[in-house]
Amino acid sequence: MSNTATGGRKIELWVGVLVLGGLLSLGFLAFEVGNFDNARVRDGYRVYADFQNIGGLTLRAPVAVAGVRIGQVTGITLSRDSFNARVELTIARRYDNLPVDSSASIFTKGLLGAQYVGLEPGFDEELLGDGDEIEFTNSSVVLEQLIGELLFSKAEEAAE
C-alpha cells in the first residue's frame, strides 16, 4: 500500500492504533470482564432433577459440587403430571464422573444471597450421562415456611 494512496504514514499509523485498540478491548472484555467458563459450560452434558419447590432459583444459577462451580441451570419447567419443578442442569464435560446416585439440593449463598444447586456425589459405579435424571433431590429451604413452622411449634409449646 503506497503512502500517497492513504494520505501518508501518520494516517496509517493512527488507524493501526485504532484497530489494535479495538482488538485489545475485545480481548479485555472477553477475558477480563466476561467469563469464557460460561460458554464452556454451555456445551456440557445435561441432567435433570425434579424438585418440589425451587424457591428463588433462576436460569444461569451455578451448579456446584463441594462449592466448586461445575455447571449452570439451563432450564426450569413445571412438570405437567406431578406439578414438580423440573430443572435442567448443564455440567461441563470434564466433570463427567458423577455417580448416578448423586443427590441435588438447592442452597442459598449466605442468608439472603442467590440460590444455587449443590450436588452431593453418591457411591454408585454407574455414572451420570447426557439426559439422565437425578433421583434424590432436596427442595429449597423457604425462609418464610421455616419461620412459620418455628412460630407454630413455639405456640404449641406455650399451650402445653
Binding site: M1, T6, G7, I11, E12, V15, V17, L18
Partner: peptide
Amino acid sequence: FALVVRQLYFAGVMTL
C-alpha cells in the same frame, strides 16, 4: 481499501 483507511482516520481516530 486505502480510501477506507483514510476515512477510518477521519471518522474513527478523530472520534477516539
